[in-house]
């Protein structure tokens, strides 16, 4: 598999969550990942980017979200970074059903954890949060032709 790197910076607006999903779906398709894996990647990316916009930037639109993809022979690394408010207690934030908003389910991190092979969250208050997610390819997909 060819290595590849994509860095996308976009405004912290809801419309861009779908753009991030489109990008990860295209990369997943290029990597010949099964459709089910692509669906799961889309959910994980959607959660990470939504968190950056909703929580990191508290829905204030004139901020930037950094979306970085790195493909190697056997890994896909997705990093979503904001320069927002940060998370005071990462461990607590990652608990299932923990949400700062009653209308939300607190499942963002649960989905990211379930659908990715590794999840790291680094956060500094008033500096921002970086969510790094890894997908390990079980085997190098054989060329289709």
């Amino acid at each position: 598999m060819k290595s590849n790197q994509i860095n996308l910076t976009f405004s912290s607006i809801a419309e861009n969550v779908g753009i991030a999903r489109l990008l990860i779906a295209s990369v997943g398709a290029q990597l010949d990942l099964p459709l089910n894996d692509i669906e799961e990647l889309k959910v994980a990316v959607s959660e990470a980017v939504s968190n950056a916009i909703i929580h990191g930037y508290r829905n204030i639109p004139n901020n930037l979200v950094y979306f970085d993809l790195e493909v190697t022979r056997d890994t896909l690394k997705i990093a979503v970074r904001d320069r927002g408010c940060g998370i005071s207690n990462v461990e607590q934030a990652m608990q299932p059903a923990f949400s700062t908003d009653p209308e939300r389910m607190g499942l963002g991190f649960v989905f990211m954890q379930s659908f990715m092979d590794d999840l790291q969250v680094e956060s500094v208050l008033e500096e921002g949060t970086t969510v790094t997610m890894m997908k390990y390819f079980k085997q190098t997909p054989s060329p289709t032709h």
Binding site: V43, S46, E47, S50, M105, L107, G108
Partner: peptide
Amino acid sequence: FVDSSGLGVIL
């Protein structure tokens, strides 16, 4: 497509 934002509205 649905993610936790969509599920939150349903719940």
